[in-house]
Design a binder for these strands. Structure first.
Length: 272
DNA sequence: TTAATCACCTGAGGGC
DNA sequence: TGCCCTCAGGTGATTA
């Protein structure tokens, strides 16, 4: 399940092969992802050179002279850079072929991902403009979360998973960060103290940095651009460990559902 | 305005 | 072995 570290890993993996490379042709095998892929995608991209490659939240942005290709990996999406003539498989939906005889392949079994085009600056696109601050920047700190959470009754986990509050924190890292900060996931965001928010931000930054360093989390579908899985899941403290013992106090971890998402926590270490 | 729920989608895994 | 059901989850749209 690609979250911010997985997207960052994908970006770093593909960048050396496609930045400043000219696209020679485009193959779209299945245009109906989360939203339809632009029908004129091949016309838009053929002969164009990738001038910029950036990440914003969980979106990858391929910048060209005349616009930006916006990619989202959804839940099961992955990107691979492969040599020409590598045969495609069932869920390989889109390929961008480059002059260096490599191609970028977009694979997404569940098709929750997206490939969109904008003629304007990506920052002006509605999907991008509404995203909150990047979690690894100085703008994202405990004071920021505290100030915008006053009077909010939503559960803290829902709050930090809201992309408009902070970019790129999904279920896995929200679950882990709340454990590390000792905050009950169901606690109202408006009731969390400034000190706890500072701990939470430290936990989010720490866990994201660690995950990026190790190449993303490997859970079910995620593979990095070289085709190998990440190795972070072995270090998860609570996610996916309901019923097992808490790594801190050894009591049994519990599972609840918040926003239709499984949420594992320690009822002793994480106070409401 | 805010918060919760729904819908999209497919593969894995468990039960029978 | 095969069928059916449940679960996993990112995020925009819809509903309360």
């Amino acid at each position: 399940m690609p979250e911010l570290p997985e997207v960052e890993t994908a970006l770093r993996g593909i960048k050396p092969y496609i930045l400043n490379q000219k696209i020679t042709y485009v193959i779209v095998r299945r245009p109906n992802l989360r939203w339809p892929i632009p029908a004129n995608l091949a016309q838009l991209l053929t002969g164009q050179t990738v001038k910029q490659l950036k990440r914003r939240g969980k979106y990858l942005l391929l910048g060209f002279d005349h616009g930006t290709l916006i990619l989202h990996l959804g839940m099961s999406g992955s990107l691979s850079v492969l040599p020409e003539a590598t045969p495609h498989k069932k869920h390989d939906h889109v390929e961008l072929h480059f002059a260096n005889h490599k191609y970028l392949r977009f694979t997404d079994p569940r098709r929750f991902g997206a490939i969109l085009w904008t003629d304007e600056k990506a920052a002006n696109h509605p999907l991008i403009s509404s995203i909150g601050p990047e979690p690894l920047t100085n703008k994202f700190d405990g004071d920021y979360l505290y100030s915008i959470s006053r009077n909010k009754k939503a559960a803290i986990k829902s709050f930090i998973m809201d992309g408009k509050i902070v970019a790129g924190v999904g279920n896995i890292y929200a679950t882990e960060a709340l454990f590390l900060a000792g905050i009950h996931p169901n606690k109202s965001a408006g009731d969390v103290t400034l000190n706890s928010y500072r701990k939470l931000v430290d936990a989010i930054k720490s866990i994201l940095k660690q995950a990026i360093k190790q190449g993303g989390t490997t859970l079910k579908d995620f593979v990095n651009p070289s085709g190998s899985p990440g190795y972070f899941s072995i270090q998860l403290h609570v996610y996916g460990r309901a019923g097992k013992s808490c790594p801190r106090c050894k009591n049994k971890l519990k599972s609840i559902r918040l926003l239709q998402r499984s949420t594992v926590y320690c009822p002793y270490c994480q106070k409401a």
